[in-house]
Amino acid sequence: MTTTASTPGDAAAAASPPTESRRERLTGLAQQQGGVAVLVLVVVLASVFSHGFADTGNFQSILVGNAYTSLLALGMTFVIITGGIDLSVGSVFALGGVLAAWGSLHGGLAVGLLLPLAVSGAIGLIQGLLVSRARLAPFIVTLAGLLFARGLLQAISDEGSTTYLVPRDSAFVALGHGALVPIGTAVVLFVLGGVLLTRTRFGQALFALGGSENAAMLMGLPVTRTKTLVYVLSGTLAGLAGALNAARLQSGVTNIGVGYELTAIAAVVIGGTLLTGGAGSVAGTAAGVLLLAVIQNLIGVHLSKYGSSASDLANGVFLALVVLVQTTLARARRLS
């Protein structure tokens, strides 16, 4: 045999891959980065029309106020890309905060940070195993996780009546201090998350799982392990977010975090991640988080006189619109 089929090193050097058509690229971008585009649009409009919006102080407060909760959306992105869902993150967030406050009170910085991470990671691990090994539906498993974490929190805080305060002189407080630390932490974790998702085998396995679990299995991917790990990751991030937030508030607030999982899901979906799994990006989620935060801020300024129901209504309508636009774009892309 003189013919060698698979490695034509001689010929390949000359040619280079053809590029996508411009239209393909544009619709693709619009679908993936639609959240970013809308974000820019809304910020520009708000800066022009809303008095006091384009103000350094206002921007800073938006960013700081959402820095730690954005980590829930980051973890959620990974889970949703696999085609799963994690409803427990709001409760785990709250539990992480209480454990951090309790830990810093009794053991200083190390315990204040490690205890919530260990517990939330363990909750994630159990959820992950139930989903991957016992093959239970993620929705049910993490709904149970939501109740469990909330219950645990009630148990260690005397039904929520005891609020542990972080000692003011604890080094732990520094983790929530000022604007730079929270914003910087979130930015660093999002960048790391982006690298993890797009540039590692683990990240690629997440996409493959969400794209087609059966195919991923037949291609020889470590399906069970990947699925388990993604819930560990999400749980740990939620616990970390809760702990850092407790440092910022200097206490373990017990009634925090209710419904945060839904906000996180909304941010992820607005960011272009498919709820059915298989496609999504961390950058999109960042845009989704910011977009929701900006809208919240505007609603707070302009609609607060109508009460919180108005802001919920506006949020709901907005979410529906974004999803509608996205699905339309995705469909157009599939047809082209």
Partner: peptide, 23 residues
């Protein structure tokens, strides 16, 4: 048995991508 949504290159190399320091 491949993943339709993922790129051709990623499908071809899935789980044995050329990498440096894990990236």
């Amino acid at each position: 048995n491949l993943i339709p949504l993922m790129s051709v290159a990623r499908n071809l190399f899935l789980n044995r991508e050329p990498s440096r320091f894990g990236v």
